[in-house]
Design a protein around this nucleic acid. Structure first.
Lengths: 270, 270
DNA sequence: CAGCCACATCTTGCATACAAGATATGGAAA
DNA sequence: TTTCCATATCTTGTATGCAAGATGTGGCTG
């Protein structure tokens, strides 16, 4: 029953798991293209809209509506929704409907804790292993961020912010850490747009980044970690306030955190 | 363009994002069912088969073959494959084919590092917050593990092992940590079946768990963390040896780590 | 014999049709 | 007026057919 391969195992066996195919090796990196299908396009659009709260938590999404809205059939829409469900951004109820998930308030703290732990590792390793050129690149990101802050360009600022953290993980030799962080902080990202414009925040964040980088440059891992921790502490301060101002966007005990276990999508009991 | 809701916004609006619907609140946990669709079934089966190496890395999977094999149509098979691709277990090349991913050797170390960081946090918090009953439950898991070890029941042993780690995350109040760990260690799990039966390993692991738990019971977080770190160090010892014995199951620089970025599935250049 | 090219055949991506369950609505009955 | 029930209509899950690209094969030409 296992061992799915050709039924007849004859005629055409392009890349069987043989140990060394004679002509082309094709040794396991078959896709240089990022799979630019229309399903991915729908996914990206919906993802952005949900993160930016352009689609309200709790809103219902219909595959048919989305399909006609994007001018495609239900199939790619459905593929996009399934991925969003795995990320916890939508909730699919089998024969009933699909809704945009409310922000699971209880998970926000956990996400921040996890992010701290992961970025701590990244900063520690980056302090040890970052090359001169990588440090230079990080400084240029800080500079770009400072410019965006002065120009009050919040989008540019945020982009540079993310690039900074990604570059640290890269310099640590653990690029997967940033991918994980990105995945974990999805729900936190949704409340970013709810923070008040609070003047000077962007410049403060830039300084915090500079502090991390200064310590890294001196190979002072512990100091860099402390700076990073201080930097990330800025996140959980405003949470209660934000919730108080937008109570209907949140939910107390939401379902599963990220990917479903082998069983299914949600385990919540309450 | 944004704000997907009803086209006409009339007739039927079952659960609009209103702040308080009169009758049923339905406040954001709509699915108690684990979505027992046939797509999930196919996914689970394939997942297990790939993890257990019953399907060799590099083997090609055809949606048609799998569909007829499982007695369903291509649609649920396709859904399953897409999820497996997001997990990094298969690689889909648009108009060409789908293959089971080879084990990305370079990512194994990173996965272990990440796992250590995450479980460290879990153990620290669990040392502080675990209730008496949770400690008792953990001891019973250790005991179950000891029994399985003595009976040479490797499956039961592994199940108890996973339950132990999951219970620690639960006791820490961060159940999402174990879900993340589970997701990160997917590729590592695939080589578990390649380790030699090495007598006494199961009893040794049991003792390591007991050491962690003893420290936790005494609320000695630092000692518990050290024990956990020592426990997890046991993983990366045998990696080079395993690779030497099964070179064709691995690949050096594989693509993306886990979930794809908003762009697509793979970024690998080499 | 070597190289090239057309074609048969496979692959996945997408559109569409059908199935089956869930839910709101409207009307009948108490 | 209130309650209950049948039903219309929506929802997602699945099956199927078509489209378009990728790839191995065989034969042709040099």
């Amino acid at each position: 029953m296992p061992q799915p391969s050709r039924k007849t195992a004859a005629k055409r066996q392009p890349n069987r798991p043989r140990i060394a195919s004679p002509a082309k090796i094709r040794h396991g990196r078959p896709s240089p293209t990022p799979r630019a299908t229309s399903a991915v396009l729908v996914y990206e659009t919906l993802h952005e809209d949900i993160i930016a709260l352009r689609i309200q938590p709790g809103a219902s999404l219909s595959e048919n509506d989305l399909a006609s809205r994007y001018g495609v059939s239900r199939t790619p829409v459905r593929e996009a929704l399934l991925r969003l469900a795995d990320e916890g951004l939508v909730e699919i109820v089998p024969k009933s409907g699909t809704t945009v998930s409310r922000i699971p308030y209880a998970q926000l703290n956990e996400a921040i804790v996890i992010r701290k732990a992961l970025e701590e590792v990244a900063v520690r390793e980056a302090s040890r292993r970052a090359t001169k050129s990588q440090i230079t690149g990080l400084w240029s990101l800080v500079e770009r961020q400072r410019e965006a802050a002065k120009a009050d360009d919040r989008n540019g600022f945020h982009a540079a912010d993310e690039a900074f953290h990604a570059a640290i993980a890269e310099a640590a030799g653990y690029p997967g850490i940033w991918q994980l962080v990105n995945q974990v902080k999805v729900q936190v990202d949704r409340i970013r747009h709810l923070t008040l414009p609070e003047g000077g925040r962007m410049l403060r964040v830039t300084k915090e980044h500079a502090a991390v980088l200064t310590a890294m440059e001196k190979r002072d891992a512990e100091r860099a970690i402390a700076a990073m921790r201080n930097h990330l502490d800025g996140l959980d301060q405003s949470l209660p306030d934000i919730r108080r101002r937008n109570p209907d966007l949140f939910v107390d005990e939401a379902g599963v955190f990220l990917l479903p276990g082998p069983a299914g999508r949600k385990t919540s009991s309450q």
